[in-house]
Design a protein around this nucleic acid. Structure first.
Length: 469
DNA sequence: CTAGGGTTAG
């Protein structure tokens, strides 16, 4: 009978509307990083007989992956399974994005496979994530193939697809190709938004192509769109990178005058620059202001603060922040530990630095090139160059700083013949060799009576340079 | 619900 069915139909409708309401609530709380309150909303809703659906859980998965950790994201997935709701493509996409953001790239690739095994067909976002991950792995060719497949299979790429392509090309050293892609997309009717401009401007800045970057900034303005906080942060950062600190701070002031509310990005950028310049007082003020603004600290903000404490020599405070970070449910990353290793080196506590390196390894973090470089440099400075050499032998990747630090310290110890060995390794590594290091070794050999060795080295340098062209 | 900008050595 109609009269009997109507109430049930209506109650279903009410509940489905309520679930929508719940989802909107959870989404806005997650966006504001208020995960605890989102959980409370969920509990309250269930108590009222309103049940979360796949969207509710997906929102939470994304929130946890974004602001807490990948593992907490996974635990939401297991909760949703327990509630009898099957994960869908979006669930996997959020996990993949979370893994990619945290540099857990093989995990992200596994998730893609897992999704296929689950019988869930990947959507455009899954491919977007896959591309992002491949770019981060330094496999631009494969990422490009995915992009190609998206186009060929008519999956119609969205703005994010283009952004990921442009960003990935830039990050892999193909900023010219990125610019070309940008122009091609425009030719085919793609109207770039602020984010796309930001991505390209950032890539060009990093490639030191400031002219091209400012041209795009101009174009952005001409397109009638206003630059946003990200645009300004990007420009500010590139000023700091190129040692134009005052100009960078001017942008910061400009942002203030334009009434931008500062987020963690802007605060951390400026604080990082101030710390680098040794302006610790101002850095402290800024971090306090950030907390006063009610910005919830995330891993990067904690890292920035920990760096500040280390540079102040307040290691007790730094470790306390580390505690606080973990108690708040966040997880440290490689930056956190590299910062501490660097801090200890700078404070001439080499034993402490080596101990912390071991500790971070025991936690499953691989030693970063930066951390190892700090230790190599620190050991050399402390006169313990043989230990530095041993570490150097064990390193998988080295860069010009690694070599420069060793050569410099070997020269300082007047061990020129050993220095020339390292210099040759450097030359054959394909990295750019600092002329000043080369001169120091040659002059050292010459002045300490190894004239023949100096001559031989000169010839070898010449040969290596010939071969490179 | 899903892209961009921030933190480490020189």
């Amino acid at each position: 009978m109609l009269g009997d069915e109507l109430p049930e139909f209506m109650s279903k409708m009410v509940f489905s509307l309520s679930t929508r309401l719940l989802n909107i609530t959870v989404a806005s709380l997650c966006k504001a990083r208020q995960l605890q309150r989102a959980e409370t909303a969920l509990v309250d809703a269930i108590r009222l007989g309103v049940f979360p659906d796949v969207v509710t859980y997906n929102t939470l998965v994304d929130g946890y992956c974004r602001f807490v950790s990948l593992d907490t994201g996974y635990s939401v997935v297991s909760r949703m399974c327990q509630a009898g709701i099957r994960p869908n493509a979006v669930t996997f996409n959020s996990l993949m994005a979370g893994a990619t953001r945290r540099h857990l790239l093989s995990r992200a690739l596994d998730l893609f496979e897992e999704m296929l095994q689950y019988g869930i067909s990947p959507d455009l976002w899954s491919y977007n994530n896959l591309m992002h991950c491949l770019f981060k792995l330094g496999r631009p060719d494969e990422a490009y193939r995915v992009f190609h497949d998206i186009i060929v299979n008519d999956l119609s790429p969205c703005g994010a697809t283009c952004n990921i392509m442009i960003n990935g090309l830039c990050k892999n050293g193909y900023s010219s190709n990125a610019l070309m892609l940008f122009r091609n997309l425009q030719r085919y009717g793609f109207v770039p938004g602020v984010v796309t401009y930001n991505v390209l401007i950032s890539g060009l800045c990093k490639a030191r192509r400031l002219k091209a970057a400012s041209r795009l900034l101009q174009e952005l303005a001409e397109s009638g769109q206003a630059p946003n906080a990200a645009t300004y942060t990007t420009i500010m950062k590139s000023f700091f990178r190129f040692k134009k600190f005052e100009e960078g701070l001017e942008i910061f002031a400009l942002m203030r005058s334009k009434g931008f509310t500062f987020d963690g990005f802007a605060y951390c950028t400026v604080t990082g620059a101030l710390v680098k310049r040794g302006r610790l007082e101002e850095a402290n003020e800024l971090m306090d202001e950030m907390v006063r603004d009610g910005i919830q600290l995330d891993v990067v903000s904690y890292n920035t603060k920990i760096n500040l404490r280390c540079k102040e020599g307040k290691f007790e405070d730094a470790y306390q922040l580390l505690d606080e970070l973990e108690k708040g449910g966040l997880e440290c990353d490689v930056y956190t530990h590299s910062i501490i290793v660097d801090g200890l080196c700078k404070a001439d506590d080499m034993e402490g630095a080596l101990r912390h390196l071991k500790y971070m390894n025991s936690l499953g973090f691989k030693s970063t090139l930066v951390a190892l470089n700090c230790i190599i440099n620190g050991l050399g400075k402390a006169g313990d160059i043989d230990r530095a050499l041993m570490l150097f032998e064990s390193m998988e990747t080295r860069d010009d700083f690694t070599y420069a630090s060793l050569v410099h310290n070997l020269c300082k110890a007047r061990r020129y013949r050993h220095a020339s060995k390292i210099l040759l390794l450097w030359l054959n590594s394909g990295l750019k060799v600092l002329r000043s290091c080369q001169r120091a070794v040659l002059a050292g050999l010459h002045d300490s009576g190894f004239k023949r060795d100096a001559k031989k080295l000169k010839l070898k340098i010449w040969k290596a340079r010939m071969l490179r062209c």
